[in-house]
């Protein structure tokens, strides 16, 4: 590791000398780029992630001088991967620059992939707002390139985070659209009730019983088999419990459903919000009485 570190620093000094000198024969940027690449490799072997990232950024500058945007974008991606271990903000900014360069040269599928990577970084950092923004951009780019599977995966993430941020209408629209697309695909149509259940739970969070009833009717028209499923009965029973303002009935319905199909943490969080709202309403009624 010590040898690799000193070797990397030596290569970096040579590259800086190349840049500062006056190149009589050939291009000084090409030679400096080659030396920077070797230096960054040595730093990575020495596990000096910050130095590797900084060196890759210099390499990207050299490639930009040479008008090689693809190589510059790739250098930014390498810098981001190095910074990922030490500095998340720097990593995100590097990937952002890489995405801009890929857009300039028309490689939208690669731009979409790195936008998704940025979103995953923010998700790991528990920054849901930024993760939502970048997942949305990524879904748009995948859709432009007709990569429907990846676009739908990103859209489901967008819907999930939108519901957590209480943007229920956006979440509902996304889930319904994914359900509609899945109906046309013989392989995916058996998962439609899952998407419709998620959309229904978001409708419940909005707190409008009439809207829930209308949505359930619309879902029956979308998928005739949905009315016979337990998900439909679950949503209908919860809507009835909310209409009657009966917390005990609500709890019974949720408990019965959970005993069959354990609810994941996302559904648990949203249903807990519905229950809290229902409890507050019931307390108001009791106070009035």
């Amino acid at each position: 590791m010590a040898d690799q570190l000193s070797k990397g620093e030596e290569f970096e000094k040579k590259a800086e000398k190349k840049l500062s000198g006056w190149g009589l024969f050939g291009s000084k940027y090409e030679d400096a780029a080659d030396l920077f690449d070797k230096a960054a490799n040595c730093f990575k072997l020495a596990k000096s992630w910050d130095k590797a990232g900084a060196t890759y950024l210099k390499l990207a500058s050299c490639h930009l001088k040479l008008e090689s945007k693809h190589e510059a974008a790739q250098a930014h991606v390498d810098a981001a991967h190095s910074y990922k271990k030490t500095n998340i903000n720097e990593s995100v900014s590097c990937l952002d620059q890489a995405v801009n360069l890929f857009c300039d040269i028309g490689r939208l599928s690669m731009a979409a992939r790195y936008l998704k990577e940025i979103a995953e970084l923010y998700e790991g950092e528990q920054n849901i707002e930024q993760a939502l923004v970048y997942y949305e951009k990524s879904a748009d780019f995948f859709q432009n390139e007709e990569v429907t599977t990846s676009a739908n995966q990103c859209k489901q993430k967008v819907a999930q985070f939108a519901a957590q941020l209480e943007q229920y209408q956006k979440s509902i629209e996304i889930y319904e659209e994914i359900a509609r697309q899945s109906l046309n695909n013989n392989l995916l149509k058996y998962g439609v009730k899952g998407h419709l259940l998620n959309a229904g739970i978001c409708q419940l969070c909005k707190g409008d019983v009439i809207a829930v009833t209308n949505a359930l009717e619309r879902y029956q028209e979308l998928d005739p088999t949905f009315s016979g499923t337990r998900e439909y009965r679950f949503l209908a029973d919860i809507a009835a419990a909310i209409d009657e303002e009966d917390v005990a009935k609500f709890t019974d319905v949720v408990k019965e459903f959970d005993s069959m199909t354990p609810l994941d943490s996302w559904k648990t969080t949203l249903l807990l919000r519905v229950k809290e709202k229902l409890k507050a309403k019931e307390l108001e009624e009791d106070d009035l009485t």
């Binding site: 528990q126 917390v247 005990a248 709890t251 019974d252 949720v254 408990k255 019965e256 959970d258 005993s259 609810l263 943490s265 648990t268 969080t269 249903l271 807990l272 229950k275």
Partner: peptide, 30 residues
């Protein structure tokens, strides 16, 4: 720490969602 905190939050929300004063009656009935 983040992972354990997420797990505990999920479990707590789950328990809070499903708990009720009529748990024993419901369990007996079902």
């Amino acid at each position: 720490f983040r992972r354990i905190k997420g797990n505990i939050n999920s479990m707590r929300e789950h328990a809070e969602l499903l708990s009720s004063v009529r748990d024993d009656i419901t369990d007996f009935k079902t």
